[in-house]
Simulated assay, not measured.
Amino acid sequence: MAAREYGQYCGVTQALELVGERWALLIVRDLLVGPRRYGELAAGLPRIPSNILAARLKELQAAGVIRRAPRSRIVIYELTPYGRELEPVVLALGAWGFKAMGDPREEQIITPDSMTITLRTAFRSQVAAALPATAYAAHVGPTDLLVRVDGPALSVTRGDGPADLAFATGQDIHRLISGDLAPERAIATGVVEVLRGPADLLDRFASTFHLAA
């Protein structure tokens, strides 16, 4: 029996043997946002040692979760259809973990891909379906995301652009998403700075993206 096997005939055991190694699910999380080059994966996981990243990529390829896809002169990594089946698992795990996050520590960061997955996790499509289409330019620390909500459809892309509401915030955005901090209070206390657009659209954002803490 290999050292990483648990010796049990069980679906949960098999899943853990495939994606339960440290960093593996975070690689999957980032690839759920989109295909990535090796360097992009390393930049999105700044604490992962290069030998561990290389090992996890090989393991996930061997498991049929990801694949290497040559594109012109570069090689990218992307999820296979089997790997994409992990999306509801990752989102559910993120919602579960959100309840225990507490206050951010100084050394903790928000990456574009981690924030994108947080927004996907918190997105309430049934609420959004009853609201007008809205675009948000969210500047979360160094992360710039353009968030477009059109009925039950959500699109999150990197960068800035035309938006109905542009705002800047930091790690405390989790307090807004959890409902711990009302939108008007978030603005009054400086947790959120409205850069352009009507401030009351932050109420719409908070209604559209919500996770109970």
Results as ranks from 00 to 15, higher is better:
V90M: 05
S155G: 10
D160Y: 14
R158M: 04
E87H: 11
L91V: 06
R73P: 01
V156M: 05
T116G: 06
G83R: 05
S155L: 02
I173N: 08
I110Y: 13
V149I: 02
V75D: 08
D160K: 10
A137H: 08
T116R: 01
G161F: 00
E107G: 10
Y77H: 04
L119R: 03
P88T: 14
L79E: 03
T111R: 09
G83W: 06
L86R: 04
T157D: 13
L86W: 05
L86Q: 03
A69R: 05
V149H: 02
D144T: 07
P81C: 00
P81G: 00
D164K: 01
G141K: 15
T134K: 02
P88Y: 14
F167Q: 07
R71G: 00
E85L: 10
A153Y: 14
V140I: 12
L146C: 08
A153V: 14
R120V: 09
F123H: 03
P162I: 08
H139K: 15
G141C: 11
R175V: 14
E85Q: 10
K99W: 03
T121K: 05
R175S: 15
V140C: 08
L86G: 05
A166C: 09
R68D: 05
T169F: 12
V90D: 00
H139C: 11
L176N: 10
G83A: 05
V140A: 11
Q171W: 10
Q126Y: 04
P152M: 01
P104H: 10
I74M: 02
T80K: 05
S114D: 08
K99S: 02
P152F: 00
F167I: 11
V147N: 11
Q171C: 12
D144Y: 13
T143Y: 14
V140T: 09
G151F: 01
A92C: 09
E106P: 07
D160W: 13
L93H: 01
A122E: 00
G159Q: 03
L79W: 02
P70V: 01
G83Y: 06
A153W: 10
P142Y: 11
G102D: 11
R148G: 07
S72A: 03
D172T: 10
R158W: 05
E107I: 13
A137P: 15
A163G: 11
V149C: 02
E87S: 04
A130I: 14
S178E: 03
F98C: 06
P70D: 04
F167W: 12
S155D: 12
L176G: 07
A129P: 06
R175E: 14
R158Y: 07
Q108C: 09
Y136C: 00
A95G: 00
S125M: 03
A128H: 03
D160T: 14
D103V: 09
E85H: 07
D172C: 11
G170A: 15
A137F: 09
R84V: 01
G141M: 12
F98P: 12
G170Y: 13
